[in-house]
């Protein structure tokens, strides 16, 4: 039954090569921790992706309760944290995951740096990786405001003040982020949109490019 459905689809769309390419690609000895324990450093990219998936899934569940306006934002997070069954676990995963993903990404970057894997022909993948790095920091900054407690509010205020001190364009960055004269209602909706739509969209596009390039080039060879 399953096989005939698959064949029916494959006959029309020829999907076999798509997944066989992923399935059959080799995992060479020098990156396989089963053979050399020190090869665990090559796992950090995969772990970063794993945590990123957790962030996306837990974030999707958070938006089922979260309300991005200054009257209800705090109350909705409070409700989710204390009243919704498993709410504190979902929020906890997103909260701690945000730190963990930075740690993993940091270790991954160091692995790539110290193994010299960013050198030709992988320059473009490194640049894409750094762009991902910046996007992740952006996600961290915008997400911090969303619970709308005092910590969120004052950290964002300081962050925007720092952006404001950039010469020439600081004022514009500030107005763009704040959406007005103060950190207030428009700031929250803006940060929400950036955190939930703009940055994840860019992140997914960059991740796709990252993975395509790895598949095309294969992982860097042994040192």
């Amino acid at each position: 039954m399953f096989k005939s459905v698959y064949n029916w689809i494959d006959e029309r769309l020829d999907v076999t090569p798509l997944w066989r390419d992923v399935a059959d690609h080799e995992v060479p000895e020098h990156v396989n921790p089963a053979h050399h324990f020190s090869a665990f450093v090559y796992c950090f990219g995969g772990l970063t992706f794993f945590i990123t998936v957790i962030q996306i899934l837990s974030g999707m569940f958070l938006t089922m309760y979260y309300v991005p306006d200054i009257i209800n934002a705090y109350a909705s997070v409070d409700y989710l944290q204390h009243k919704v069954p498993f709410g504190s676990i979902v929020r906890g995963m997103h909260h701690w995951g945000a730190s963990l993903v930075i740690v993993m990404m940091f270790l991954h970057t160091l692995r790539v740096f110290f193994t010299g894997s960013y050198k030709a022909p992988r320059e473009m993948n490194w640049v894409v990786g750094m762009l991902i790095f910046f996007i992740m920091l952006g996600l961290g900054f915008t997400g911090y405001l969303l619970p709308w407690d005092n910590k969120a509010y004052f950290a964002t205020k300081v962050g925007i003040q720092i952006a404001n001190s950039v010469p020439y364009i600081g004022e514009y960055i500030k107005i763009f982020l704040q959406g007005g004269e103060i950190v207030g209602a428009t700031t929250l909706t803006r940060f929400f949109a950036i955190h939930v739509f703009f940055l994840p969209g860019a992140l997914l596009a960059l991740l796709a490019a990252h993975f395509l390039m790895i598949r095309k080039q294969g992982i860097a060879g042994p040192l």
């Binding site: 200054i70 705090y74 504190s88 929020r91 906890g92 997103h94 909260h95 701690w96 407690d149 005092n150």
Partner: peptide, 12 residues
Amino acid sequence: TIAHPAPLGYPA
């Protein structure tokens, strides 16, 4: 996440 619930202070 169970041992350390995500922190939440007082409303801004």
